[in-house]
Write a protein that binds this DNA or RNA. Structure first.
Length: 347
DNA sequence: GACTCGTGGGT
DNA sequence: TACCCAAGAGT
């Protein structure tokens, strides 16, 4: 007689589950913020961002008063910036239409921007408003292995099958603990690499996974290499010149030193701003990977003395020791290089 | 349905 | 190194 998956997962969760995560609280607002942060982002990365975010914006009311620029600043470095734009939009909806109370019904939660089926299920179930299955990366991996599902389906069809399976194994009682336990199991036992099948609580439930059988590999995707000129300008007040990114979708709304795809475009910009007389203090280069692209940044650092010929806007300068706008990680890297060189120069 | 969106970590 | 994946959703 095989034990049921739900009982086994719940027993295991009671003993080994991650119950001290900071978003294990009775507040749908905080659960919402954590669930958005956790999309495609590992727990250890999220924790410091979550703590800082909740400290500054402890409820819907404080959040709904924040500007998008404020929110991009606190999200800076976490990635997938559309998430925080959606949080901002959702906060306005909740403030205007739900009287600053996070909605309780699954359908209302699902309507909010940035919230799909898994996130809506997680928020409403963890909040005690519903008892729904989820289908995140952990649950997908567990189901694929447990039921030995062939990876020959089209993606949409596979998702349908996996959702059915997830609903099938998800119990109507203690649903919150079950879906949390399932994710914990995926993260700590049924891992992507080197799964610990010997200690797995649902092995005895009829798991069909055989770790020794090699899985077929996906088709390799080509990685684009992109070369970019990054122009870091520092003035005599230890301020850096930054512009808001307004083109494309990547890093849209964050702030950066000017970037150029070619030397001639950079030359034109230098000419238009009366900067051609400047020589770089030094140069550096580094790479920054973005999913299927690798940016190779060639950085030139300029020092600008008080120079009235220069036509850069006076509004675009930010104190290096306290930059109060959101930056992409690549600019952090570039500024870290500057700071380390600057400190050496002062020794 | 394929593609995009960031960054950190693992192999 | 080059590639994969992580509490996915939107276009």
């Amino acid at each position: 007689m095989q034990s049921s998956i739900s009982e086994s997962v719940l027993d295991w969760y009671d003993k080994f589950g991650r119950k001290n995560l900071p978003w294990k609280v009775d507040d749908p607002y905080k659960i919402w913020i954590s669930e958005i942060m956790l999309q495609q982002t590992q727990v250890q990365t999220v924790i410091p961002y979550y703590l800082k975010f909740i400290k500054k914006y402890p409820d819907i009311k404080s959040l709904s008063k924040a500007s998008l620029d404020d929110l991009l600043l606190i999200w800076s470095g976490l990635g997938y910036y559309t998430r925080i734009k959606n949080i901002h939009a959702a906060s306005q909806i909740i403030s205007n239409h739900y009287n600053d109370m996070f909605p309780k019904s699954f359908d209302e939660i699902l309507m909010l921007p940035g919230i799909g089926r898994t996130t809506a299920s997680a928020i409403s179930t963890f909040s005690g408003f519903s008892n729904r299955a989820i289908l995140d990366g952990n649950v997908k991996r567990i189901l694929l292995r447990f039921f030995n599902i062939n990876d020959t389906y089209a993606k949409s069809e596979l998702d349908k099958i996996l959702w059915k399976k997830s609903e099938f194994i998800t119990p109507p009682k203690r649903t919150s603990d079950f879906i949390q336990g399932l994710m914990d199991l995926g993260a700590t036992v049924c891992k992507r690499t080197q799964p610990d099948c010997l200690i797995c609580p649902i092995k005895k439930c009829g798991c069909l996974y055989e770790p020794d059988i090699k899985q077929k590999k996906d088709i390799k995707k080509t990685i684009k290499k992109i070369s970019t000129l990054l122009t870091v300008i520092i003035n005599q007040h230890n301020q850096v010149y930054l512009e808001k990114i307004t083109t494309g979708k990547l890093w849209l709304g964050l702030f950066s030193s000017p970037t150029f795809n070619s030397q001639s475009l950079k030359n034109n910009w230098m000419l238009n701003n009366n900067l051609v007389h400047l020589d770089p203090m030094y140069e550096s280069s580094f790479t920054h990977r973005v999913t299927n692209k690798i940016y190779h940044f060639n950085v030139q650092y300029y020092f600008l003395k008080n120079d009235k010929k220069v036509s850069l806007s006076t509004k675009n300068w930010y104190n290096l020791s306290d930059i109060n706008v959101g930056l992409p990680r690549y600019l952090d890297k570039a500024l870290t290089i500057y700071r380390s060189k600057h400190e050496k120069d002062n020794v």
